[in-house]
Design a binder for these strands. Structure first.
Lengths: 147, 147
DNA sequence: TTACAATAATTGCATTTGCAAATGTTGTCT
DNA sequence: AGACAACATTTGCAAATGCAATTATTGTAA
């Protein structure tokens, strides 16, 4: 069985990922938002306030990039950035009311695009797909970049 | 049933996609290559010479970005860029012998990482997963960015 | 308590990216 | 043939990204 690049997992993943991102980004642009900004807000909405490094792991974005992104979001009034008095080297990022309202409006839009993508699938198939993606991620976590 | 961002398809897709990319990129760096460069080479290897715009669609990379990327790859001797005499507004990108050998060495490495990711799956499950990803892409293609 | 390692976040700088505008080429309509 | 639209690629420029170095704080061991 020969290896076909266009049937490889990274290729297929990247392709749908980029496509979904493009579609949603067009909507986000109407609110002067970028996809990474939305992701940050969505994580904060779901998980509550986070340290920068934890946020970085959750949204899969380089920490230095994220630091600057948070600065921009703070300027827009979407998040707050506080240094807790009990640990002055960390920073606590939280959603503002504005950010909260915004992300609450946007999540249904994201849900819609997802709906379009999986339109032709049964609930069971969707569940299997998502579990597979989680499992793959776990399998990949096991190798630290050495193997 | 409430919407969970971290269970959403875009999130899960992005997460594994980025992770796989990071792992493979480390290997590519040893050859002074980037992930987009590898993708270009892999597509050319599989599909043969391509016009820039076709290549752009295949690798899901902005055409202007790709134009510059091809320039860099040409400088490295990985690809050639020829303007066909029968159509002077297109450009024909092709792998050089060097590029061909390189990508032939790298594809097994890519296959290995894929293997690690799907280690715990049956062949049948993998096939279903890949079909699902193709199907989702098709479903998303149907909306041109308006809906 | 002082010195030093470890952790967390930010910043400098070079590279990459993406949009829009520009360039060059082919097709079409009169 | 001439004018103009459509297509394919490239380039200008501003914004985003990633790595390495820097700054600041906390933990630890003598």
């Amino acid at each position: 069985m020969t290896y076909r690049f266009t049937s490889s997992l990274p290729y297929l993943l990247n392709r749908v990922g980029v496509r979904m991102g493009e579609l949603f980004s067009q909507r986000l642009a109407e609110h002067d938002l970028t996809l990474p900004m939305y992701r940050v807000m969505a994580v904060l909405r779901q998980e509550g306030p986070q340290r920068l490094s934890d946020l970085s792991a959750m949204v899969t974005v380089e920490i230095s990039t994220l630091s600057r992104l948070v600065t921009a979001m703070k300027r827009k009034g979407l998040v707050s950035r506080v240094r807790p008095e009990d640990n002055g080297r960390t920073v606590r990022i939280d959603l503002t009311k504005t950010g909260e309202k915004l992300v609450d409006n946007l999540m249904p839009v994201a849900a819609h695009f997802e709906e379009v993508g999986i339109r032709s699938f049964s609930e069971d198939e969707v569940a299997r797909l998502k579990n597979a993606l989680k499992q793959i991620h776990e399998n990949l976590e096991e190798i630290g970049g050495s193997d």
